[in-house]
């Protein structure tokens, strides 16, 4: 409701909260300058920190990607980028990254929505919610050890399967592609859904109960109420959850690194892992930088395409 009544603010049409002055008036202009100065003061810390600590190092990475990896590094043009045409492992890595994007965008969002909407304020519901949130708060070390327990060939999952007579289903979960990538994406969903649940809960707060009641009175069933009342109002939250999952999916590294290190062979590598491998293990910073640049272009491009559309439609 709030979103629909809010007048357009950010986006491609820079509006101003006040009516545009009809004629240039020095006093007004001074006010406008002061306003802009005030806005600058609010933005400066963020822009400065991000610019110096994050964007500047990235700029050096872009620069580095045009130099080769010999001992006396020389200008190499686009040579490092040619890896994407010749290296099979890198192509597999691109494939995996795409799988990750689909998996991390769809799974935590769908599951998070399901759990946030199915649970209510009862004690038991809260317990269920807690179950989902706990993994998010766990450190990577615990996640790695536990999931190795579960997924290794002689691990808990296969134990369980043979205990219930489904031995035929047991397999080497982390060893065969593409199963291993899919399994790790599910583990990621296990850990990441908690965030989605919380965000969606925060979004549910914003839905005025009257609109739901009104829909009920109009004879809408639960599914229709969800589809036509809840979902549209969760829009701002959905943008956050999906925007975040998109970036995290493309950058996925931690979980892969602790579970398989991109292996066996290079079967589960994503671009972020390939970049780490090239830069730090194979000691080819030029090639690593090129992968980082390509990855960043993909993340930026995907986020831009998604968010641009969302901001536009929302009119925000």
């Amino acid at each position: 409701m709030r979103t629909t009544t809010a007048p357009p603010s950010a986006g491609h049409r820079p509006p101003s909260p006040e009516p545009r002055p009809l004629r240039p008036d020095p006093a007004r202009r001074r006010v406008a300058a002061r306003e802009r100065f005030a806005a600058g003061a609010f933005m400066t810390p963020a822009v400065l920190l991000v610019g110096v600590v994050l964007l500047a190092p990235f700029a050096t990475t872009v620069y580095r990607s045009f130099f080769d990896d010999h001992r006396h590094s020389g200008f190499a043009g686009l040579h490092n980028y040619q890896l994407f045409l010749t290296d099979d492992a890198l192509l597999r890595s691109v494939e995996n990254t795409l799988l990750w994007v689909v998996g991390t965008v769809a799974l935590p969002f769908a599951l998070g929505m399901l759990i946030a909407c199915l649970t209510d304020a009862t004690r038991w519901s809260r317990f269920a919610r807690l179950c989902v949130i706990i993994p998010y708060a766990l450190s990577g070390a615990a996640v790695a050890v536990v999931w190795n327990f579960v997924l290794s060939t002689d691990g808990a999952l296969n134990q369980l399967l043979s205990a219930v007579g489904l031995e035929s289903l047991s397999t080497s979960w982390l060893l065969d592609w593409p199963g291993n990538t899919l399994v790790i994406i599910c583990v990621n969903a296990w850990q990441a859904t908690g965030v989605a649940v919380i965000l969606i809960l925060v979004g549910l707060q914003g839905i005025p109960p009257e609109t739901l009641e009104a829909a009920s009175l109009d004879g809408a069933g639960p599914w229709q109420r969800f589809r036509h009342v809840v979902l549209p109002q969760l829009r701002p939250v959905s943008i956050i959850v999906i925007g975040m999952s998109l970036a995290n999916g493309l950058k996925s590294f931690d979980l892969l690194w602790v579970l398989t290190r991109g292996g066996p062979g290079r079967a589960t590598e994503t671009l972020a892992v390939s970049m780490y491998q090239e830069t730090f293990l194979l000691q080819r910073p030029g090639a690593g930088s090129a992968i980082a640049v390509v990855l960043t272009v993909i993340v930026l491009g995907a986020s831009w395409l998604y968010l641009r559309r969302q901001f536009d439609e929302k009119g925000a």
């Binding site: 933005m43 190092p57 972020a272 970049m275 960043t296 986020s303």
Partner: peptide, 30 residues
């Protein structure tokens, strides 16, 4: 500032700050 105050080039500022979360962290190490 970006949403409520009268600022020019909101989109540019948004992407400038937001892009920080889109870069892979390993890039920053060296």
């Amino acid at each position: 500032a970006v949403v409520i105050m009268p600022v020019r080039r909101r989109v540019l500022w948004f992407w400038l700050i937001y892009s920080g979360t889109l870069l892979p962290l390993q890039v920053f190490l060296r």
